[in-house]
């Protein structure tokens, strides 16, 4: 069960600076922990987050083991036209999730 929470304003004025907030469900297992019997718990983290607007990449982040579970990533951008934000999270063990949100620019 993986789910994402996305907060993008539905509307904005041309040239406005808007804040985008994203929350992705993930355990972010560091790979540095051991079980009671001494085996290493294998690393299982999100390694990359990307945001595209109308197909063009506008934001990217690499993630590392020190980042807490359920990573909350926020950033700012300016909008000049209506369109669609597409979000993608990629990680260990073939983890791959997407989400999208549209904005109307007046």
């Amino acid at each position: 069960m993986a789910s994402a929470l996305i907060n993008v304003p539905a509307k904005a004025k041309r040239g406005d600076i808007i804040e985008i907030k994203t929350l992705m469900s993930h355990i972010m297992e560091t790979g540095y922990r051991h079980t009671a019997t001494g085996e290493v718990v294998p690393r299982d983290i999100i390694t990359s987050f990307t945001c595209r607007f109308n197909g063009a990449e506008i934001f990217r982040a690499d993630l590392f083991p020190a980042i807490s579970a359920n990573p909350f990533i926020t950033f700012f951008t300016t909008v000049t036209q209506s369109g669609k934000f597409e979000f993608e999270w990629i990680g260990d063990k073939g983890f791959s999730e997407t989400a999208s949100a549209s904005i109307t620019v007046e």
Binding site: S3, L5, I6, N7, L23, N70, F72
Partner: peptide
Amino acid sequence: DEDTANPGML
């Protein structure tokens, strides 16, 4: 306070 920041909402 904010549903899209509260990890409990996942």
